[in-house]
Amino acid sequence: MAMAYTTPFILFYILLTITPSLAESECNEGATLCWNCPNTGSPSSATFKGNLKAILFSFSTLLKPQNDVVRYYNMTVGTKPDDQVTAIGLCRGDLIKDPKLCQSCLNDTATSVLEKCPTQKEAIIWAEKCMIRYSNDDSRFHIMENKEPPKVLKSPKKYTDVSAEKFKEGLESLLDKLIVNASSSVEKYASGSVNVTASRSIYSLVQCIPSMSQKECSDCLDESSSMIPDQCCGGVEGARVLKPSCTIRYESGIFYNVTDNTSSNTNYSFEPSKEIGEEKNSKDKTVIPVLSSVIGVVVLTILVHGFA
């Protein structure tokens, strides 16, 4: 006999099936923090947790940056297979001359990831100005994860003062230039802006994990930028695409610090290929002569037949 499913049962089943994924990947209100806590097996041990805390809270105090350009930290503690922890901490590229803000972000984010992912052996958390990632499998940090679903956050604000085509063209032009600059630099970071119209500018930054190669960084950012604006963010003033290995953000107002590195803070020129308004006017101008010719032929025909 067929089983009859009531509406409450169906709703319960749907909630049951989607709840785990929602619990593993979330953002707080305002999306100032987003995290992903995949369930990768048995809960972490007390030794693992101790090693993890030791790493996370040493980023901003005991360790020196991996290089002199960006504040990037990478450390492994413990022995395989149960208690080893590999963790990275990365501050946004524009914080190079603001170590206190970088330190504060890493400390706050370390506390948050321990709260959000209390038993997981692997996690990643993105704040606005820094990110932290850890795993019990250090090979995870040497794999390009382009296929991993990104977290996409878009602004609730929509632009109305410029055409969608012109905004898209300006944004794509800006991202293309930033990706080239970031992937070819030591810091794997670039920021800049473009004036779409006299009153509308777009500001953006892109960043990869500094240990990535030029090709790895470029591939990661290219895949993320391909989602903007058509797949996720059409018509909105700003958005973020967050991945374990790279991030992209754009806004209608400046949101990053301008550093002395001019190659990472450039206002790029932008020449639209063709204005929609001009295209429309061109079509209108084409229609007018055609209509005039048709009307002339009709009038001439009437006159000829009239006098015949």
Rank of each mutant, 00 (worst) to 15 (best):
T7W: 12
A239T: 03
K147N: 13
I202D: 09
C37M: 02
E216Q: 15
M131H: 02
V70P: 02
I202E: 08
G170Y: 01
Y203G: 10
V297N: 00
H305C: 13
R240S: 11
S163F: 07
V290G: 00
E128F: 09
C34R: 10
N136Y: 06
T79I: 15
G50T: 03
L171V: 04
V236T: 13
C27G: 05
Y189S: 07
A190K: 03
Y72H: 02
S201C: 07
K97L: 15
S225A: 15
N267L: 04
W126S: 03
V152S: 06
D94W: 03
D98H: 14
S293T: 14
V298N: 05
G277C: 11
G306N: 12
S201F: 06
V77E: 03
N181P: 01
D230L: 06
V77C: 04
G192A: 08
S173A: 10
E26G: 15
S44N: 08
L291F: 14
A182H: 03
E271L: 02
L33N: 14
S224T: 01
C37A: 12
S201L: 06
E216Y: 04
C34Q: 11
S25C: 14
F141A: 00
N36R: 15
A31E: 14
L15V: 01
A87V: 08
P38E: 06
S204I: 11
K166F: 02
T47F: 05
G50V: 02
I302R: 10
E279Y: 04
C117Q: 04
N136L: 00
L221Y: 04
M75K: 13
L11W: 09
N257C: 01
S183E: 01
P229Q: 01
K157V: 14
T17S: 14
Q231R: 10
Y256T: 10
G277M: 10
T79N: 02
D222V: 15
I248N: 09
E223D: 12
F270P: 01
N28D: 12
A308Y: 07
A54N: 14
T79R: 01
S25T: 15
G50C: 00
K151R: 09
K129G: 07
Q120L: 05
G238L: 03
S139F: 08
G192P: 06
K129V: 13
V290C: 11
D138N: 05
Y5R: 09
V236A: 05
E172G: 11
V297Q: 04
F270Y: 09
T32P: 07
T160A: 06
L205G: 08
S44Y: 04
D108H: 08
N107G: 04
A23M: 10
I132K: 02
N261F: 11
I132V: 13
L22V: 10
R133Y: 02
T301G: 09
I276R: 11
T266C: 06
Q84L: 12
C217S: 06
L52F: 01
E251T: 15
I248P: 07
G234D: 15
E128R: 13
T76E: 12
C34L: 08
P65T: 00
P156M: 01
W126Q: 08
S155H: 10
G306Q: 08
